[in-house]
């Protein structure tokens, strides 16, 4: 639930374009790092973990409108840098099936990346402090999902704001005084240019997301904790780099 299950055409263009720009910048920053390691076994591992995430995200728990992400577990196994690429690929493939729109791939990738990266560092710190792998996995998953849900809500809240009105672009009072040869008018002068408007009940949306989400965080936290302790029992080598 932490990423945005919004279709295309709901969020204003400046917002989803910003998402794409941010994820492209992130991928470009780490491009050389990926290229340097392109011959390593990281790429097949990334493919496998991305496919596990796709499988888990395709299994919805209908009563609470939630699906398990496994983003924290994958982030811990892959490491923060490779997880950026993993989250982008997962969101791109999911968008191919309408699970989140194509335009929101950038924003969704940023949210899932936050989960994986933050989950990795939180787990590392909590494991050092508590020395208990289940507890570290459980707490890092819950805290990370809590934060990423708030990031998702912030994005939707930003979508309800009209950036053009915030900067007084294309508004009637300016156009009236404009006596030049060229006059710029928006198709919907006076209306919001973004799709989301004040009629969108953000409070209701946030209550529902946080209500269903909180059940989901606990489920994901428990599952992540058990998965990590299971993996640690049978294959402790996976955690050598953590």
């Amino acid at each position: 639930m932490s990423h945005i299950h919004l279709p295309d055409g709901i969020l204003p263009a400046w917002l989803w374009l910003a998402g794409w720009v941010f994820i492209v910048i992130l991928l470009l920053v780490f491009r050389e790092y990926f290229k340097k390691d392109k011959m390593s076994s990281k790429i097949p591992l990334l493919g496998m973990l991305a496919s596990i995430m796709i499988i888990s995200m395709s299994l919805e728990i209908v009563p609470i409108l939630y699906h398990i992400n496994l983003s924290i577990v994958s982030g811990i196994i892959l490491g923060p840098a490779w997880f950026i690429l993993c989250s982008f690929v997962v969101n791109l493939i999911l968008a191919f099936f309408g699970h989140g729109g194509i335009t929101v791939v950038g924003l969704n990738s940023l949210i899932i990346t936050t989960e994986g990266v933050l989950g990795y560092f939180l787990f590392r710190s909590l494991w050092l402090i508590t020395k208990r792998i289940f507890l570290a996995g459980f707490l890092s998953a819950i805290l990370t999902l809590f934060l990423s849900t708030f990031i998702a809500l912030t994005i939707v809240a930003l979508g309800t704001m009209d950036i053009s009105s915030a900067f007084n672009i294309g508004h009637k009072e300016h156009l009236d005084t404009d006596k030049g040869l060229l006059k710029f008018e928006t198709g919907e002068s006076g209306e919001h240019s973004g799709e989301l408007s004040t009629e969108f009940d953000f409070r209701k949306f946030a209550v529902l997301i946080l209500g269903f989400g909180s059940i989901g965080w606990i489920l994901e936290g428990l599952i992540s904790g058990w998965i990590l302790s299971y993996l640690h029992k049978v294959r402790p080598r996976i955690f050598e780099g953590v």
Partner: peptide, 26 residues
Amino acid sequence: LFNLARAFGYLLLKGIDDSQRFYENL
């Protein structure tokens, strides 16, 4: 939930092992 976690844990383990085999074949 514990059984579900074990199921996903096994899937992850299988995925990690297969990725290594896949890499060696490549």
